[in-house]
Simulated assay, not measured.
Amino acid sequence: MARIARGVEAAKQARAAIAAAKTVEQLRQAQAVVLPLEHGLSLEATAQVIGLSVGWTSRLRNAFLRGEVVGDGRTPPRGGRHHENFSPEREIEVLKPFLDRARTGGVLVVPEIKPILEAALGRPMALSTVYNLLHRHGWRKLAPDKQHPQSDAQAQQDWKKNSPRKSSSSARTGPKGHRSR
């Protein structure tokens, strides 16, 4: 026999929430409370009716019973930096000397930055974490250019036009005009 659904005291509030719902998420959350209580549906059947998984249905239902309404602006949205090493302000503080030096023409050298970040954090960190941190602050790993920044395309074209060319017959003959074998 299935358990009796809890939250009877919230049923009236959930019915009012169905009428006042402004978004689909709010409607589904209120339905996750009302359907098991007033219609006797199981959590699985309720999930199927509202079009969510059993886990999400349970999560929405429990949140409503705790007094949290989806999309009301009081509860923070899911996502974010749950495993952050530093707060964004602390990252800026630790990177400030390196970024200032780089803005004035210096080069960011990750092996120099990594030990300082590890000392500030108090434990080792992966090299990829350092690159991700620099990327968050607008820096990237530089790759060599395809051409030199001070190259002159016009001078290169002039050189090509004026350079002597070998004919195809002179390439096949030796120094005295004899064919090489």
Rank of each mutant, 00 (worst) to 15 (best):
A5R: 07
A10P: 02
A11N: 06
A17I: 03
A19T: 00
A19I: 00
A20W: 00
A21R: 00
K22N: 00
T23Y: 00
V24I: 11
R28F: 04
R28Y: 03
L37W: 07
E38L: 14
G40Y: 05
E44W: 09
T46G: 10
G51T: 10
L52R: 15
S53T: 15
V54G: 04
V54N: 12
F64V: 01
F64R: 03
L65A: 03
E68S: 01
E68M: 00
G73W: 00
P77G: 02
P77L: 12
G79T: 04
R81H: 06
N85P: 01
N85I: 07
P88V: 02
E91S: 11
E93M: 08
E93H: 14
L95T: 08
L95H: 05
P97A: 10
D100V: 13
A102Q: 11
R103G: 15
V110N: 02
V110I: 14
V110L: 12
I116H: 05
L117A: 13
E118M: 10
A120C: 06
L121A: 11
S128L: 14
R136L: 06
R140N: 05
Q147G: 09
H148T: 04
Q150C: 07
Q157Y: 08
P164C: 10
R165K: 15
K166N: 13
S170C: 09
K176V: 06
H178V: 12
R181K: 14
